[in-house]
Design a protein around this nucleic acid. Structure first.
Length: 113
DNA sequence: ATGCTGACAGGAG
DNA sequence: ACTCCTGCCAGCA
């Protein structure tokens, strides 16, 4: 039953790995999708200690701010996102955050349009 | 096994 | 608009 903990991390990996280039997801959203809406901080922890091969640069704060613990600081994170095609303001915040936010596909919802 | 920490989020001043 | 405080939960030592 405790596998939920283990799954939590696994789900975060899966979700992050599925984030399309040019899109971003918030820690809280990832946590919620993983099963714990209040474990946003944990996602940050996993991002720091988790698999470095995953595109953690696409994981940002709900406010559109970038991760302070990212290699190189917010500046490094901003630059990484610019490469992804994401526009970053001089305030190191994502422009049109709502549009950049990636919404994971529904399990069995047929996309009709 | 326990405690402290933290790449967050939300509410209040 | 910005800053400060609180809550929350898994990971790490």
């Amino acid at each position: 039953m405790e596998e939920v903990n283990d799954d939590f991390r696994q789900r975060i990996y899966a979700l992050v790995a599925q984030i399309p280039k040019g899109r971003v997801m918030t820690y809280g959203q990832l946590a919620a999708l993983a099963g714990s809406p209040y474990a946003a901080r944990i996602v940050g922890g996993i991002a720091h200690w988790g698999d470095p091969d995953l595109p953690w640069q696409r994981v940002v704060m709900k406010d559109g701010s970038l991760a302070p613990g990212y290699p190189g600081g917010t500046a490094g994170h901003a630059e990484a996102l610019r490469v992804e095609g994401v526009a970053i303001n001089d305030e190191f915040k994502i422009e049109n955050m709502a549009e950049r936010l990636w919404r994971p596909p529904h399990p069995d919802q047929n996309s009709l349009l």
